[in-house]
Design a protein around this nucleic acid. Structure first.
Length: 576
RNA sequence: CUCUCGGUAGCUCAGCUGGUAGAGCAAUUGACUCUUAAUCAAUGGGUCACAGGUUCGAAUCCUGUCCGGGAGACCA
């Protein structure tokens, strides 16, 4: 017997033994073929077609029970929803033996247990579509107590809401909070829509290395790991851009990848150390084309998920209907501040930053300063989807120089709800220029920017063979999901967000062996701990009379089947 | 890393200026054959996150630690 268990867990374990004793296997091996779902019954059943629901079999989890003597109502939850069961004693126990109802169902089954039932569908006097149960089978006994969430008239009572437990025990969250399950269904639909969209255009979905000898394609600190046989450092990818471009060099016209990327940076409600991006590269296209493609794709996702281009996100209604607003970066800054920074020198930019209380440091070049200005003055104010185009060349080492605007590159980001949604450019395919850009990055690195990009010789070699003009895109799946499902935190769109490890249950005090060495029978050791005795010194300080009383009390209370104690024994433990 | 709020029963939460812990749901026992936040009666259930300190006495005050939320910093 485990004294660490709560009273209710103890009771459920006892029920398990009793079920076994009754010949009811709490974990049967054979399959249980269902022929209907809760959702199907609730939507399809009506007075005309009730004959089609005379013999339904369904399985799910008991979520609430209302027992009224010889009849009971149970809310059964399957993957599609909840359906009420009407269970009558004399229906599920036809003969004299009422054990299955009186003992097994009423006493030994609990909220959280998974059962399978057969019966017919009917409508109760209160007008609720329900299943009149003819037979019932336990499919899995639940040993832990589920949080019970009650609901009436759309109002939820005692919602299971502690974020820590919800994220650590997502399975519980999913069981009791159906809207959470729905968010993740939407996430998958979003990905499917995107995949279908890209596949139908003939682009090839590919996989590229996650473990990379050099990390590239973005500016971020990587996770570092080590390969034993090769005895070399490997990095978890921060992006897959450089590999996908190698595939464009190889002759594919369009490639894309849904990729888990890893960045060793701070965590907040928009950042998780591992996250998902979709990167797309299409040959013979430019960033103008890519803007149209993004609009089309995201608009389609909104329609697939919501049936409309309008999506409620927090207090804002966001409309993804094409075409989206387009601003150059300079126009955006001017629009929100009235200041034209397009012709400014580095010193002027630094002064402008100061004017807007934006911190700067020596490692920031002209491009970084412009980006800061944009980020601080404009980005958060862009709620409706907006393309920001034409970024400074200094901070876009993989983008092609603008066809007509010196100092800028052909790059855009889509901003939505004040946050970056995607990043794209006309890809730089001039190998000489690319090498020069990498070298500039190395210079920035020397100035103290610890996220500047590293030079990838093999990638440069591939460009030297010749890469067609290409448009490339990276789109954050987590953030897009947050917007499309109206979630405030990235943790709410990841099944298992990163967390610090749970505190291991602290085993303070002496080990079992130490207590046994003092002559204490091993079966009494847990009881002793329960009584608050954690160390041999606790024994020495306690009153044997009082301790005996307490231990005997616990023995009785916990119904322990171990030999009782005499005062002399307890005194001996205490050294008295 | 900084600031801030929090951690009390399985869940949601009370617990004031220190006096050894309370409610609802859940559980147990009983009643109840159309209930639905079922109802009625009785009962049990706690390492008050952890470790120190102050005190005659700490869930409560102080210090430190752990875990989490929020806001920053960082991260385009």
């Amino acid at each position: 017997m485990n004294l660490e268990l709560s009273e209710q867990e103890q009771i459920r374990r006892n029920s398990l033994t009793e079920l076994n004793a009754l010949g009811i296997n709490p974990y049967p091996a054979e399959s249980f073929p269902v022929n209907v779902t809760a959702q199907a019954i609730l939507t399809d059943y009506n007075s005309e077609n009730h004959h089609a629901f005379q013999d339904v079999t369904i399985a799910g989890r008991i979520m609430t029970r209302r027992i009224m003597g010889a009849a009971s109502f149970v809310d059964l939850q399957d993957s599609t929803g909840r359906i009420q069961l009407y269970i009558k004693r004399d229906e599920i126990c036809e003969g004299e033996d009422k054990t299955l109802y009186n003992t097994a169902f009423k006493r030994l089954m609990d909220i959280g247990d998974i059962i399978g039932v057969s019966g017919y569908v009917f409508i109760t006097q209160m007008g609720e579509i329900s299943i009149h149960v003819k037979s019932l089978k336990l499919l899995s006994k639940s040993l832990r107590v589920l949080p019970v969430v009650k609901e009436k008239d759309e109002q939820v009572f005692d919602a299971f809401s502690d974020p820590e437990v919800r994220y650590r025990q997502r399975y519980v969250d999913l069981i009791v909070n159906p809207e959470v399950r729905e968010v993740f269904v939407k996430r998958t639909r979003l990905v499917n829509t995107m995949r279908n969209f890209l596949s139908s255009k003939g682009y090839l979905e590919v996989e590229t290395p996650i473990l990379q000898p050099l990390y590239g394609g973005a500016a971020a600190r990587p996770f570092k790991t080590h390969h034993n046989s090769l005895d070399m450092t490997l990095y978890m990818r921060i992006a897959n851009e450089l590999y996908l471009k190698r595939l464009i060099v190889g002759g594919y016209d369009g490639v894309f990848e849904f990729s888990k990327d890893f960045r060793n940076e701070g965590m907040d409600r928009f950042h998780n150390p591992e996250f998902t991006q979709m990167e797309l590269y299409v040959a013979y296209k430019d960033y103008e084309w890519m803007m149209d493609a993004v609009e089309e794709m995201v608009e389609r996702i909104a329609i697939d998920l919501h049936g409309t281009t309008k999506v409620q996100v927090g207090d804002n209604e966001i409309d993804f209907k094409r075409p989206w607003k387009r601003f150059t970066m300079f126009e955006a800054v001017q629009h929100f501040t009235g200041v034209d920074i397009s012709e400014m020198t580095e010193d002027e930019l630094r002064a402008t930053c100061k004017k807007f209380n934006i911190e700067t440091n020596e490692s920031m070049g002209k491009g970084k300063l412009i980006d800061e200005l944009f980020g601080e003055t404009a980005e958060a104010k862009l709620i409706q989807p907006t393309f920001i185009t034409d970024y400074p060349v200094e901070m876009s080492p993989l983008a092609k120089k603008h066809r007509s605007k010196p100092g800028l590159v052909e790059r855009f980001e889509a901003i939505c709800n004040g946050k970056e949604l995607c990043n794209a450019f006309s890809e730089l395919n001039d190998p000489i220029d690319q090498r020069a850009r990498f070298e500039e990055q190395l210079e920035l690195g020397k100035r103290g920017d610890d996220e500047s990009m590293v030079l990838d010789e093999d990638f440069l070699r591939s460009l030297e063979y010749g890469m067609p003009p290409t448009a490339g895109l990276g789109i954050g799946i987590d953030r897009l999901t947050m917007i499309m499902t109206n979630q405030q935190s990235i943790q709410d769109v990841l099944f298992f967000p990163q967390m610090r490890p749970e505190k291991a249950s602290v085993v303070t005090g002496a080990t079992d062996e130490e207590f046994v060495a003092l002559g204490i029978p091993s079966e009494w050791v847990p009881v002793l701990r329960k009584a608050g005795i954690k160390l041999p010194s606790d024994l020495a300080e306690s009153n044997p009379n009082k301790l005996l009383h307490e231990l005997s009390g616990l023995r009785k209370k916990l119904k322990l089947e171990i030999p009782s104690l005499r005062l002399e024994e307890v005194s001996a433990w205490c050294g008295k």
